[in-house]
Simulated assay, not measured.
Amino acid sequence: MSPTPPTTPAPFTKTPGWLDWYANPSRPAFTLPPGTVDAHCHVFGPGARFPYAPERKYTPCDAGRDELFALRDHLGVSRNVIVQATCHGADNSAMLDAVAASQGRARGVATVRPDVTDAELRRLDDAGVRGIRFNFLKRLVDAAPKDALAALAKRIAPLGWHVVVYFEAADLAELADFFTSLPVPPVVDHMGRPDVTDSPDGPEFTRFLRFVDRGEVWVKVSCPERLSVSGPAALDGERHPYTDVVPFARRVVEEFPESVLWGTDWPHPNLTDHMPDDGLLVDQVPRVAVTAAQQHRLLVANPMRLYWPGEQL
């Protein structure tokens, strides 16, 4: 990775306290299997070319396709799934540009408005988009978009797409029936943001697991840096941070080996206390997927089936 620090050109001024991505990630000790997919990452701008949305809740640093692809190669990742960042609203230009530049090594997850045309959905499909994302985090959206999501889910079903949903664990009780009623698979960001100070056998996380068990639900075992309370300190070895998240992720992988995904969440939006070393995030993988078979499903087979179905590595 280049040590050049990220910048945000005028007229965009970063949100106060915004943490830039880790410019010099370590080399992972764990060797990712060939064909590994980073199934959750983003691009920000660059703002001079892809302006940030006027309605955005934050202004990030620039973190474009070149930096993402440099990280991909540094970590040993083969492919990316680039998820539309909320700072770009429903203008998917930066994400689509990165997917196009990947030469087939990336897919996209878009944000679309309820009035999106069928022609635009077909254009996005041709460009490599395979899903749409809806955010249910109350600090990032003004209202839960149930009606819009239900209508859009019916329209994307013929394309074979899915919906990526982001919510807080405490809100699942009021959302679970709605998600499982959709005619397309839900893909849950970051294990539904469990409270890792609780037990992975406790009622809240057990409710989440039973929700996953009800239907065709995919789960990203991602973002330990966002979920952890213990934080980046190495508690059981110098390359083992975020220890408190491991039992939750491991339980998901063990119970649902055919429907788990992994991603870096680069460039890690909205973190306020520290910025993770992406090399250490790779080294979390064998702690949550402990066998070679689990690792291959998590990193290769599952994301290929969801985003590149029928394609041979």
Score class of each variant (00 low, 15 high):
S2P: 03
T7I: 12
T8A: 14
G17V: 03
G17N: 06
A23I: 08
N24S: 15
A29P: 01
D38H: 13
A39E: 05
V43P: 07
V43E: 12
G45W: 02
R49F: 01
Y58Q: 01
T59M: 05
T59W: 00
C61W: 15
L71M: 12
R72Q: 14
N80L: 15
T86S: 15
A101L: 10
A101F: 04
Q103C: 08
R107S: 03
P114M: 00
D115H: 11
L121G: 08
A127P: 05
A144G: 01
D147R: 13
D147L: 02
A153P: 13
I156K: 05
A157K: 15
P158Y: 05
P158M: 12
W161P: 04
D171K: 02
L172T: 06
L172Y: 08
F178Y: 11
F179M: 12
T180Q: 11
T180Y: 02
P183K: 08
P185D: 15
V188R: 06
D189G: 03
D201N: 15
D201L: 04
P203S: 12
P203T: 14
F211C: 06
V212F: 02
W218I: 07
V221H: 12
S222E: 08
P224G: 08
R226L: 10
V229S: 13
G237C: 02
Y242K: 08
F248M: 10
E255V: 07
V260H: 05
W262G: 08
W262Q: 09
T264I: 01
T272G: 13
L281K: 02
D283R: 14
R287G: 09
N302Q: 03
Y307V: 11
Y307D: 09
